[in-house]
Nucleic acid binder design. Sequence first.
DNA 1: TATATTGTTCTCTATCAAAGAACAATATAG
DNA 2: CTATATTGTTCTTTGATAGAGAACAATATA
Lengths: 310, 310
Amino acid sequence: MSDKLLEMETFVRVVEAGSISAAAEQMSVAKSAVSKRLSDLEARLGVQLLARTTRRLNLTDSGRAFLAQSKEILAAVDIAESTATGSRGLIQGKLRITSPLTFGLMHLNPAIREFMRLHPDVRVDIDFSDHQRDLVHGGYDLGLRIANLGDSQLAARPLTQIRRAIVASPSYFKDKALPKTPKDLLELDCLHYSGASDSRWVYISPNGQKGAIEPIARINANNGAFLRDMAIAGGGVINQPTFNIYQAICSGELITLLDDYCWQELTACIVYPKTHYLPLRVRAFIDFLTEYFDRDEPYWEREIAQAVKQ
Amino acid sequence: MSDKLLEMETFVRVVEAGSISAAAEQMSVAKSAVSKRLSDLEARLGVQLLARTTRRLNLTDSGRAFLAQSKEILAAVDIAESTATGSRGLIQGKLRITSPLTFGLMHLNPAIREFMRLHPDVRVDIDFSDHQRDLVHGGYDLGLRIANLGDSQLAARPLTQIRRAIVASPSYFKDKALPKTPKDLLELDCLHYSGASDSRWVYISPNGQKGAIEPIARINANNGAFLRDMAIAGGGVINQPTFNIYQAICSGELITLLDDYCWQELTACIVYPKTHYLPLRVRAFIDFLTEYFDRDEPYWEREIAQAVKQ
DNA sequence: TATATTGTTCTCTATCAAAGAACAATATAG
DNA sequence: CTATATTGTTCTTTGATAGAGAACAATATA
């Protein structure tokens, strides 16, 4: 007898991924295996669930109904198993995460190492990318997002505020005056992050008024680390989240400009599919990260504050 | 990854069967396999579901909860699969039946052969016994019962009325007078079915009055075929269901006595566990049998009626 | 029209589950 | 109270089978 649950799981994944190849990729098995599971399932039921050309998959009516029931069943199994183990156990399986590139590379490594130390049976599959992946479609358990999001399909758990700062290398100002107002930035070499939806640099001035400038980008790049290193090398002025530049600020490689202005903040969030049941490993990881990135003051803010004091 | 559904199914069966050995027997696998499935499941969950000594099984609290959820899930899977196939398909799997001995041997053979011809993927496991098996405990899909039952735990579908007749061999009356009233039977050699709950022979007389006699059993036996053959051989008078003796009546080997009395009738029923979902093969078999044993007039009654005409 | 990508099919292999015997533990019978 | 039967576990051997990987067919896209 074949493994019915595995067949159902495969079927669901194929539908959500949109193709057999993608589902195979996500499940880390050969696509021949996925193809076989699917056709075995259909043979057993004697019904075609997916009308497939080589290029496109379409749910049949039977398939649509079976899909819904399969999801229910898979969730029920998860629930049954986790209630059986109680709170203490069964944090296991593969955790599929998508994370913004720079933030992930700079701050996720130790967090994940610690989480995996706590839960030896968890494996992790991370996709670093500044493209916002479709969680369901991509088969991700959760994603990190740095945005002021209003995504409706997903549940979101705020992690911490992301402050920004305008910084440049001290050497950059050897022959230039420090800016006094945001407008002064327009005269300088601004290095801009091209991934942002808004090409302006938005601020609140010391007297509480909102404002924005549209910097003339000397360089556009879709990678924060690149912009940071360029600024450190004296390439110009950047507007970047503090998590990216705190080390350079502490070391003095970068100095903050227009300190009394408050540059548009973002929120770091964990997003995950709004499902009535969340696998234990996902819940555990969310709780862990929430703890890890102290909501009020993440460690990079503390380090900056300390450096300023000295 | 192990087959979670198979583990759940095994767990449920072990609990209902009351022992690992019995469950293995019912599932037609080695008990070592059942034992392993169970301990694998517990290991995976990290929880003991069944506290087992070598002699007794006890559900733990976790086990009790997991049992209920497992049943739900297994039923959900069945439902999902059969709705997917629609009405037309997936009548397959092993049909576990328990049937009364004589009735089963005389009348079930062609019925089951026909059913299996219609549904090639069905296998059948029959237990012939006049002991009323516990369906759930014994892991049966359904049972045939010949009784005026009021069993509450089970759902029942009436098949047909079972008429009775008092018969004996013509040769038996070579030197005896035929009985005129039930009381006259007390003077004859009555051969009694010892499996009945009631040791009396109950009747309604031609004028509509109820009555009963307590025959003095010359022979007690718990097998109807044996009693029939004994009567044919001239051993005495029997009170037996017509399904058992119709051939002998038609052939003249047995003659009916006290024809104008109506001897207590029984009802042939199919009983099955009152579950919210019935596997398709079970439903199909029930429908088939209902059709097969025409409720109003089963074929043996028709044959008797024909023989009487001639 | 050429190319890339998709799903299927095939064979080969490694894995894993079941069988079956041997064993340990515990009711039951005499 | 001892002998026996029955139960669940453990171990090794064996067989089935699911997955890998390549080759293929079909279809979008450039």
